[in-house]
């Protein structure tokens, strides 16, 4: 047969000749798989005598009833008991940290007379060291509410982020409200030398003097070292 094809094809076209010869050898099958199809399930013949029951799997024995499914009761829902646990805990903590609610009112964002960014705030601590400064930002986070105060102490810019409801904070007072409502919520631009308000010690001292005159006591809570020593350096 190969002889005849060789005879018929022109001798120059070797490629087509090889193509016509090679496939014949390649198409021989070496492996045959026969598709069988699904094995059909046979039903159990009816009326199996009792002597053969022991050979059957348990679930097929005629005396076996339906499988019992145990359904457990839901445990009582925690969500139903307390819909907003975070709020509840915050309220509980606030009751502990701020029993009178005065400081919460001062730092209430809805309170028009409350502390806002841009105000000069004075904080005194239980240890007796006050810190005052311009409020750059107030983070309202429930009991974790904090206020970022900036001041220039001995001509060095100092910033302190104070937790408002911390038990170590004795008092928080607004020494001076911002003259103009700032058009930002956070006044980080006050860090730039161009906008820096500088030391607020004078304003705080004046506020303390005024408060002392009104209450009739001695001015308290002022920064001891900030007064005479800072003044000598012209802070």
């Amino acid at each position: 047969m190969a002889q005849t094809t060789l005879f018929r094809t022109p001798t120059c076209c070797w490629r087509s000749f090889v193509r016509s010869v090679l496939p014949q050898t390649q198409h021989t099958r070496s492996h045959v798989s026969v598709h069988v199809g699904r094995v059909e399930k046979l039903d159990l013949p009816p009326g199996v005598p009792q002597q053969f029951w022991s050979q059957l799997p348990k679930r097929l024995r005629p005396d076996q009833g339906k499988r019992k499914i145990i359904i457990h009761e839901h445990p009582p829902s925690e969500h139903e008991a307390c819909k907003e646990p975070e709020k509840a805990i915050h309220a509980e903590q606030m009751k502990l940290l701020d029993p009178t609610g005065a400081r919460a009112r001062l730092f209430d964002p809805k309170n028009p007379d409350g502390a806002k960014a841009g105000d000069i705030i004075m904080a005194t601590f239980k240890t007796g060291e006050p810190f005052s400064g311009v409020a750059l930002s107030i983070k309202w986070r429930g009991p974790h509410t904090s206020v970022l105060l900036r001041n220039q102490v001995t001509r060095v810019g100092t910033e302190m982020d104070i937790k408002v409801f911390s038990p170590l904070v004795q008092s928080m007072e607004v020494a001076q409200k911002a003259t103009k409502r700032p058009r930002r919520a956070r006044l980080f631009y006050l860090r730039q030398p161009k906008h820096d308000v500088g030391s607020v010690q004078k304003t705080v001292d004046q506020y303390l003097r005024q408060r002392a005159m009104l209450t009739g006591g001695k001015p308290q809570g002022g920064r001891k070292a900030g007064g005479p020593r800072g003044g000598r350096r012209g802070a």
Partner: peptide, 21 residues
Amino acid sequence: VRAHKEQQRKDGSYIRFDDNA
């Protein structure tokens, strides 16, 4: 004695200065 990077204190407050000294 002073650092520009804010540093947390034990009471949760932060302190930062404008320069390193």
